[in-house]
Design a binder for these strands. Structure first.
Lengths: 196, 196
DNA sequence: TTTTATAATGACTATACAGTCAGTGAGTTA
DNA sequence: TAACTCACTGACTGTATAGTCATTATAAAA
């Protein structure tokens, strides 16, 4: 590759990575392109050479995030046969990107629709695995008869509640690192699923 | 009362009410003081004669909201003896202010700490009633042994999930009006509490 | 009636920010 | 080496918005 093209790609990657860092600590809405440029060590204008607009930059970051999370879930899901496995797969994939993912779900209402689509995409995958596992459990009468969608929403709601209130649950660190096991265990108990 | 003082109070009330409307439809963070002034039919500067700053205005609106919700819960809680009663009391109190309450919990991370205190205050009351009712049920062995805090967080998380995703669950109207009964019923089933 | 006090006005300031563009210098080609 | 290309710069523009203040109009006091 030509040296110029190489440097161009490098700069783009630097900006993307800087943006990811800034968004992870300040959230998407409260981060300025100026700050991202500074963090990346480039001029403010350079950001707009690589990304049409702030919105496109945000979408690019979210897209990278979404792709990574869904890939991880997909990989891990091959060995997920119990509900416990599915829950753990979900939380582990999110935990890796906890801070930026938390900001994503908090800022969602103010982000473009395409961003929301990414979140929906992630949840669809989890919902799919949920569906499979829970239908099996229902068939085996190992679980009470509740709408799967309700159970799913309860789970997602619970996780998002912990994530959006990380300041309350884990002021200085990862919420999931602390509560992951406890959450999975208690949720299984709630559904009365045998842990085996 | 002197006519001047009366008019002053009237103007203040008009601004407060206009702010409440605007916040309910646009959210707290995305609403400008200009827009609120326009809605109230007063000059922009007038807003700052009655409220030191935008932040103080937001806090005043939230304070009114918090007081009303907690009062309602307090009133209604006198007749709340079962868990179903407590859940219904909670949702009914919120439903009345659904749009602004939803924005409150969504914008919370970006609001001053005092605002967060209001939300915590509301939840403390609910948590208190939860505690009483669930401890009783536990004593009577009518419920499985899970940490009450976990059950509480699951409930709040579920409700907040529906509220923050109202665009998904109820694009044109009140989420709680549609799902209130269903949510209560399914949550009770989940805990296996006798509905009587 | 005249004077004083003050609620309200709206033009103004200051600031923050997204996005632009003429200019610069290093890399590439002839 | 000379001409050219293009990634990058940073000063600039335009816009949105919180908050200020001299001025105005009206109610209260003298």
């Amino acid at each position: 590759m030509k040296k110029r093209e190489q440097q161009r790609q490098q700069t783009r990657a630097t900006i993307l990575s800087a943006a990811e860092h800034i968004y992870a600590s300040n959230g998407f809405v409260q981060s300025s392109t100026q700050l991202i440029a500074k963090e990346a060590g480039v001029a403010h204008g350079t950001v707009f050479l690589h990304f049409q607009s702030q919105e496109k930059l945000i979408l690019a970051v979210i897209n990278v995030l979404g792709t990574d999370i869904t890939t991880r879930i997909h990989e891990s899901a091959k060995q997920s046969h119990s509900l416990a496995d599915v829950l753990r797969t979900h939380l582990t994939a999110i935990e890796i990107h906890e801070s930026i993912y938390s900001h994503l779900i908090m800022d969602m209402p103010q982000l473009p629709k395409e961003a929301q689509q990414t979140v929906i995409g992630i949840q669809s995958i989890i919902a799919h695995h949920f569906d499979q596992v829970l239908n099996q459990l229902k068939k085996e009468k190992q679980m009470k008869d509740l709408p799967i969608s309700f159970i799913f929403n309860t789970w997602i709601g619970l996780i998002h509640y912990y994530l959006t209130n990380c300041g309350l649950f884990a002021p200085h660190g990862s919420v999931l690192a602390i509560y992951k096991d406890e959450l999975i265990l208690n949720f299984l108990k709630l559904l009365e699923v045998d842990k085996s």
